[in-house]
Amino acid sequence: MSENEKKILILGVGNILYTDEGFGVRVAEELDQKYQFSPNVEILDGGTLGLRLMGPIMDADYLIIIDIVLNEGAPGDMFRLLGNDLQKACAFKNSMHQTDLLDTLAQCSLMGKVPDDVILYGIEPVNYKDMSAALTPELEARIPEVMETVLKEVEKAGGTYTLRTETNPATEKVYVPRDTSRNSGN
């Protein structure tokens, strides 16, 4: 990575055990498995780590967060949020992690190191309260579109990517599997 390249962090956050709450993590997993990124791009499953994300966030120049948001939209609506809009959307109390994310960004700011650009791609959830490793069918269907949007943001920030093939396979990682049987109509 050259000194002029921005360090880009793609951060999927959420709790994969509560239906759509895990959407951001699932998008990050898909991106990691399907694409190989330039050395200046890192993908991180932020789960519900809160303040433990300070290091990676402070190391980044360009932060792309993927999460669910309650933004008064219809279920499945996607929002690109910055600044005050990001704070408003992340400030709801029905989440186990989003207020932590704002606290983490605030702590990074106090330490004097917040990425120059912080963008949240949030999607309005259908269900984030029921315990299930499955996304709702509506949000499962939105994963490809959100991935494409994030890939465009990576390009805009100066990162590159290529589709993984047999010659550049994904490294083997163990993820909590999505329960897709719920989405098949069975």
Rank of each mutant, 00 (worst) to 15 (best):
A141N: 13
T99S: 11
I65S: 01
E42R: 15
D116K: 15
L53S: 09
P137K: 14
K93V: 13
N40S: 03
G158S: 10
Y62H: 08
Y161Q: 00
D100F: 11
I16G: 02
E148D: 13
L31E: 04
G47N: 02
A170F: 03
M147G: 10
M1L: 15
I8H: 05
G112L: 07
L53C: 08
G12H: 01
G55A: 15
D61R: 11
V176A: 14
V174C: 11
G83L: 09
R182P: 10
G73P: 03
P125D: 03
E153F: 05
E155G: 05
I57T: 08
G50L: 02
L70I: 08
N168P: 05
V146L: 09
I68K: 02
Y18T: 13
P75H: 01
R182D: 11
I143H: 03
K156I: 09
A141Y: 10
L139I: 00
E3Y: 10
G158C: 04
T162Y: 01
M78R: 07
R164H: 01
L151R: 06
G112K: 01
H97P: 02
Y62P: 08
V154T: 09
F23H: 01
R26M: 08
H97A: 06
L17A: 14
P39A: 02
G73T: 01
Y121W: 05
M1H: 13
M147Q: 13
E29P: 04
G14S: 03
D45A: 00
V150H: 02
G14K: 01
L63I: 12
L9V: 04
T99C: 12
D103Y: 07
E42A: 12
K113W: 05
D20C: 00
A133L: 13
T167G: 08
P177Y: 12
A74H: 11
K6Q: 09
G46K: 00
P75A: 02
D85P: 08
A28Q: 07
L17G: 15
Q33C: 11
F92A: 09
T162A: 09
L9T: 05
L139A: 01
R80K: 12
T136C: 01
P137L: 07
E30K: 14
T180Y: 15
N186F: 15
Y121N: 02
N183G: 07
R178C: 05
M111V: 12
V176C: 09
L9H: 02
L135D: 10
L44G: 04
G55I: 12
A28G: 06
D103A: 15
D20I: 00
R52M: 14
D130V: 15
G158F: 04
F37H: 02
R178Q: 10
S181K: 09
V13T: 09
K34M: 12
E21S: 10
D77Q: 01
P177N: 09
K88G: 08
A141Q: 10
V146K: 04
P56D: 12
N40W: 02
G83D: 12
P56W: 03
V27G: 06
L139N: 02
T99Y: 13
E140D: 14
P137H: 13
V146H: 06
D61W: 13
A74C: 11
